[in-house]
């Protein structure tokens, strides 16, 4: 049954087979968690997002129609939830400005070359325009096609190609400047 398509599993779930959900969860939890970690920093928050995403799936199952792949739908939901959470957190932060910011902490020294490269890469990824970063992550981390990424982000496949290309170019330039490649 685990080789069944998303559509089959979804239909089975709709018919009341709870194990179908287990299979769907197993299929998507890993990729979704990785995806979610790109939005929120700690694991618990990422798990929260993913759990919530699946809850949405359960609730929306009757209305989903038959989808050949649930991936794009799940990513889209997860992404929207992440933005929602972020909005709330921003508000929360504004409310809690009583406690002052500490002085910036120095960057740790003595990292291995590999760690350093990874740190540079993370920093540069953070500096990418949000759309580009998202498109790139969906491509590299999740292996979605341009068309599927377009579905997630609500844009055309051609635009995805352009965003990915921009992101790759920017990163390559910066990494080259930092002599990481």
């Amino acid at each position: 049954m685990s080789e069944a398509t998303d559509a089959t599993l979804l239909e089975a779930f709709r018919q009341g087979d709870s194990t179908a959900l287990d299979f769907l969860v197993e299929r998507f939890e890993g990729p979704l968690l990785r995806f979610a970690r790109g939005f929120v920093r700690d694991q618990a928050a990422a798990e929260d997002l993913v759990q919530e995403t699946f809850v949405r799936l359960i609730r929306s199952a009757p209305d989903l129609g038959s989808q050949s792949s649930l991936g794009p739908w799940l990513y889209r939901v997860c992404r929207n939830l992440a933005y929602d959470t972020r909005k709330m957190e921003t508000r929360e932060m504004q409310r809690r400005e009583r406690v002052q910011e500490p002085e910036p902490t120095p960057t740790p020294v003595g990292l291995s070359e590999q760690q350093e490269t990874a740190a540079i890469l993370r920093r540069e990824l953070d500096l990418l325009p949000e759309r580009e970063r998202e498109a790139l992550r969906l491509k590299v981390d999740q292996g979605l096609s341009y068309t599927q990424i377009g579905e997630v982000l609500g844009i055309k496949a051609g635009t995805v190609g352009w965003l990915v290309h921009q992101a790759m170019n920017r990163l390559t330039e910066r990494l080259r400047a930092a002599q990481a490649i």
Binding site: E29, L33, R34, R37, A46, E47, A118, L136, L175
Partner: peptide, 16 residues
Amino acid sequence: LNLLRQASVDAGPSQL
């Protein structure tokens, strides 16, 4: 891309 792929094998758990 190789760097990105290495980095994307991140440490976090892959299960709920």
